[in-house]
Design a protein around this nucleic acid. Structure first.
Lengths: 236, 236
DNA sequence: CGCATCATTGAAGCACATCAAGGCCTGTGG
DNA sequence: CCACAGGCCTTGATGTGCTTCAATGATGCG
């Protein structure tokens, strides 16, 4: 039984990833106890967990369900005929991805690290959006925000130099660590490179440059402290 | 008096630009005789004409109205503090631009050549979308299509070399001339350069290269014949 | 016809890619 | 606990595609 309004499902599921730690081994589907305990995977409101680097859906597949990130990080990417990869976007807690007007997913989604996702039926949501004005508004808002993001990313990709790209990326992820100015990047430099259209070498050199200039400090390759946030922003 | 459904206004206004030729001198507002003859400019369903290079709206202005292109070409662009300009998109007949969920226009719109636009009240459309499912769907679809476009453009900007960018641009505009493989570009090379993130020199050199290879033929800088469409597509 | 804008062509420089090699983590098994 | 293996990251040397700077050639409009 579906609830009368999708809004009743919409608030972020309060589950944290550790609830599902036993299910993370190999994408077993599991049900979010905060939602409908008798729903199974692929149904409205259920939750699925994915291992690091596991494929969530492939570009071109029928977009019958979409997802909301509860925990973890997802990358949306496309592979080209020459084997190269473009990472269009990273999705984090609260982000929605895979919702299409109809047809197929225009990109491939993969888990960056172990993550938990709400699985939502596209058909049912489309039906509900027809009668639920608030839901329709949220979907619309999500699409518009996504477009602004894409246009903004196009700007970063085309107008910024390597150091500026990396600085913009770090600012985008600031506050995602354990509070303050500590960043814990879930993805590899290779992911970042394909997101910023740079090589791993240039990522490394740009980070080194930012550290030499005293704007950041590296605790480890993936754990970065922002020392001078304002100066970092001023670069862009 | 508004009609009961926006759909009654929605189909492309059949007016062609020459109906307004007398009004094109200096953006006098004029009313589309096919719609509401007693509506004035800035009202629902009215039509406004703009001269070449004339500003339609500025980035940051309140997005109280949006537009549908009846005839001509519009560029959506942003200006940076260093004086540089990025052209995010060109809008052509049938395209909708300037519709925002709320708030301000995120880009500046300017007429590339003399053009006629339907002016639509954002507030009224938002109200109608609440009760008109079909309209809401169209708006949603427009936003989703725009996002795919932006993501695709980001790919072209970041992954293609100069010749590929120009080839992709020509293909995008193919069929816009007087039929067949003749293209009549309404914009200058400078516009194209800011759209593809290249310099005018590189645009010129890339076009010259495509002509040397026998893929296109130049009748004039803005009128281009595609000689070998398949080979042009194969470049990308 | 004259001027302004736009387009073309050439020469030099630079930012990032590519190629290459070495170092550093992290997990695994003895 | 140590040794090893395989990613992943870092650093250096070289190459190149596009920009920048500069100058000339077209085009169109008053």
């Amino acid at each position: 039984m579906l609830k009368s309004s999708f809004r009743e499902y919409w608030p972020a599921c309060p589950c944290s990833l550790d609830i599902y730690s036993s299910a993370i081994r190999g994408a077993e589907s599991c049900v979010c106890p905060m939602l409908e305990p008798n729903l199974t995977s692929q149904q409205f409101g259920s939750v699925r967990c994915f291992d690091a680097d596991q494929e969530i859906f492939l570009q071109g597949q029928l977009a019958d369900v979409f997802f909301k990130v509860l925990d973890g990080t997802v990358r949306g990417c496309r592979y080209f005929s020459d084997g190269k990869r473009q990472v269009d976007r990273f999705y984090r807690s609260g982000d929605i991805f895979g919702f299409e007007i109809d047809g197929a997913y225009p990109f491939t989604a993969e888990a960056v690290n172990p993550c938990a996702l709400t699985v939502i039926s596209a058909r049912e949501v489309r039906q509900m959006a027809a009668i639920d004005q608030h839901l329709a508004w949220q979907l619309m808002s999500n699409a518009m925000t996504g477009m602004r993001r894409a246009v903004n990313h196009a700007t970063v990709l085309s107008r910024r130099n390597a150091v500026q790209k990396v600085a913009a990326f770090l600012i985008e992820w600031a506050g995602d660590g354990d509070g303050g100015n500590s960043i814990l990047l879930p993805m590899t430099h290779s992911d970042v490179a394909d997101y910023l259209n740079l090589t791993v070498e240039t990522i490394s050199r740009s980070i080194a440059k930012l550290e030499q200039e005293g704007l950041i400090r590296l605790q480890s390759p993936k754990r970065i402290n922002i020392v001078n946030f304002d100066a970092l922003e001023a670069l862009i």
